[in-house]
Amino acid sequence: MATQLKSGNEPGIECSKEEWQARLDLAACYRIFDHLGWSESIYNHISVKVPGEEDTFLINPFGLLYDEVTASNLVKIDVEGNNVGGSPYMVNKAGFTQHAYFHKHLGTRAAAICHVHTTATMAVCSHKGGLLPTNFYACNFQGQIGYHDFEGITVRPEEGERLVENLGDHSILMLRNHGPVVMDKTIQGMFVKMWALQRACEIQVATLGMGGPQPVPQDVVDVHQRDLSVMAGQGGAGLFDFEAWKRRIDRIDDSWRN
């Protein structure tokens, strides 16, 4: 059953309760990213699959800052990036070309995707060694990241096949000289993965700045990842983290719920 939703100067939108919840979660995610300093002017993007629908997704309106994104002004698009929800906003083509290929070919494995240009993650993507096993968070991801050589702005569909090939069976793809793409089955899982990756990169940049990094042996990395998989279940795959940050942004500005 569809629900008619209207807010402020935004056009009325008709959607299911499931889509409205996805809109709320995605709008919250944009505000959390902005609060954490992960936004990049009007660029970069987070997209999520619309629950219960085939090949439809939600993404930010091109031209708005992350702190202007709300549940009702998110743009509903198909896998080709066409506006199918009647939004007056356009979508950044470079913002969805790579996402579209992942969404289309990886299914629920890539239900939620983000791409960022944070200083720390771009620095690690631009380092010839990539993410090194020199800190707690970096050990989370050893052997679980794909790398893709820089080909320029990601607006050409033919690059998609190479992106998926280089991702392999991982859920993080470091675009060399560019920035990371992080994905998960849920927006909560994607968020907590992005949070840990950001911390890993920040610490690596600081460590390399001092010189003489201390690598963690592979056998210790293996034990770390084994124990981490046990602990991860306690946090509901990022659910606790995401809800905590939603409470934080609600205290600052709850207009994302509009």
Rank of each mutant, 00 (worst) to 15 (best):
A110C: 05
M1Y: 11
Y137N: 13
H117V: 00
C15D: 07
A206L: 12
G95N: 02
R257I: 03
N9H: 14
D67L: 07
L5T: 14
G160C: 09
H178G: 04
E158I: 09
L26A: 05
V50C: 14
Q144S: 13
N135E: 02
A123S: 14
P88Q: 08
Q142K: 10
T56D: 06
V223Q: 13
A200P: 02
F242W: 07
R257P: 05
Y101S: 08
I203Q: 08
E165Y: 07
N140E: 12
M1D: 15
F191V: 05
D78G: 01
Q198T: 06
N44S: 12
E161A: 15
C201R: 01
L26R: 04
D241E: 13
M210Y: 10
K93M: 03
K49G: 04
N166L: 09
G37L: 08
A112W: 04
L163P: 00
I145D: 04
N135T: 05
G168I: 11
E68H: 13
T97D: 04
G168Q: 13
D149C: 06
R176M: 07
L106R: 13
K104H: 13
T154S: 14
R162G: 14
G12A: 14
E54C: 10
K128S: 10
G37W: 03
G179N: 02
P213C: 07
I59F: 06
A28R: 04
T97W: 03
V124R: 00
H103P: 02
G238T: 02
L26Q: 02
G152S: 08
I203F: 02
I249H: 04
V230Y: 12
D222N: 12
Q21V: 04
E18Q: 15
N73H: 03
L5R: 15
P213F: 06
D78T: 07
C15P: 01
H105A: 10
Y43E: 10
M183Q: 10
Q98W: 09
R23Y: 01
I42R: 08
S7N: 12
D78P: 02
C15Q: 11
N82P: 03
L175I: 11
I13S: 04
P180D: 05
A94R: 07
V79N: 08
H105Y: 14
L106W: 06
R162T: 12
H170A: 13
M231D: 12
V221H: 07
M90I: 14
Q234D: 08
G86K: 11
L239T: 12
H170N: 15
M210A: 12
V84K: 05
N135K: 06
H224Q: 10
I32N: 01
E158A: 07
